[in-house]
């Protein structure tokens, strides 16, 4: 089992490495190279050649990749082409903001989704279950910006309860920060809870339908005992799995929600960088997002391994 965990960790690292190759290849080797990206329409053959030399593009891609990865490993992502500032300096406060928003949303969404999902599973087929099923089917289909703008229109513009812009600065105190980011958080929660809740419900129901749960009832065990001792330990792995995968989805949601509320996060930075063809920033942001995504998938995997009795207690 330890071997299996080590294997997964190794696989995770390998995936990260593969992602880094992909990010690098995507930005450096594709037909329109960095130099033409920087110069855009003003490019002349001479200026292009000069720019290539300046950026070191005349050396082989493999060499540049190793150099880039080596620098990235020690926290050096180069300089932004747009602002000419150090990429790490540019990213650090943004990353902090995004992590804050994402954890804020996760902290609210996870307990809420699990609780709602468990309730739906317990009252399966009842009015609550059907209502929740219908509502979540609706909200799953609703894009983040619609939720965001509806919240702004009614909670912010009409009622004036919350600010519509989440314009935090590095020295905004925590309490104020929580208030400022309330609407972005709520938007994310609304979008992610539906799926998380449906999956929680499904995993619990699948466990509850297994023969050993029927057997537990036939043994005359009280319902709390069946749920807590027999169903929950077995349902835990699929639930953690679902949560981790949904949090990975949150990464994408964050990018859009940041745009809706003009929140100075990593997603906004990346979108700006993409439209400005600011490759070093795109690479750094991409690597961070990919890393978070891979980490969450790894956690989902680990949960499945750790909770499998066959692996925990081999023959």
């Amino acid at each position: 089992m330890l071997r299996l965990i080590a294997q997964r960790l190794g696989l995770g690292l390998l995936t990260l490495l593969a992602a880094s190759v992909l990010i690098f290849a995507g930005t450096e080797i594709l037909p329109g190279d960095l130099a033409s990206a920087v110069l855009q329409n003003t490019a002349t053959p001479e200026s292009l050649a000069e720019m290539r030399k300046e950026l070191g593009l005349d050396r082989p891609a493999a060499v540049r990749y190793v150099e880039w990865l080596g620098n990235a490993a020690v926290g050096d992502f180069g300089r932004s082409l747009a602002s000419h500032r150090d990429v790490v300096e540019e990213i650090a406060p943004r990353l902090r903001n995004t992590l804050f928003l994402a954890s804020y949303a996760a902290l609210v969404a996870v307990p809420l989704a699990v609780a709602l999902g468990l309730m739906a599973a317990i009252w399966q087929g009842g009015v609550y279950d059907r209502a929740v099923n219908f509502v979540t089917l609706l909200t799953i289909s609703v894009p983040e910006y619609l939720v965001g703008y509806i919240l702004i229109k009614y909670l912010s513009v009409h009622l004036g309860w919350f600010p519509s812009l989440a314009n935090v600065t590095p020295d905004t105190p925590l309490v104020q920060r929580i208030g400022l980011t309330f609407l972005p958080m709520l938007t994310l929660v609304l979008v992610v809870v539906a799926h998380m809740m449906r999956m929680t419900r499904a995993s619990v129901l699948q466990i509850m339908a297994s023969p050993y749960i029927e057997m537990a009832f036939l043994k005359g065990l009280p319902k709390w005992r069946v749920v807590v001792r027999h169903a929950f330990p077995n349902a835990l792995a699929p639930i953690i799995n679902v949560i981790a995968l949904d949090l990975a989805y949150l990464i994408v949601g964050v990018v859009i929600v940041e745009a809706v509320f003009v929140y100075p996060g990593l997603g906004q930075l990346m979108v700006d960088a993409v439209s400005k063809h600011d490759v070093p920033v795109v690479q750094a942001c991409g690597l961070i997002f990919a890393g978070a995504f891979i980490l969450l998938n790894l956690i989902a995997d680990m949960a499945a391994i750790l909770s499998n009795p066959r692996l925990r207690h081999p023959r």
């Binding site: 023969p211 036939l218 043994k219 077995n234």
Partner: peptide, 16 residues
């Protein structure tokens, strides 16, 4: 009254 099912493999909780 106690019950003995056809498939013991499915009727025992794998985690206990």
């Amino acid at each position: 009254v106690a019950y003995i099912a056809q498939s013991a493999a499915a009727s025992f909780n794998p985690a206990m």
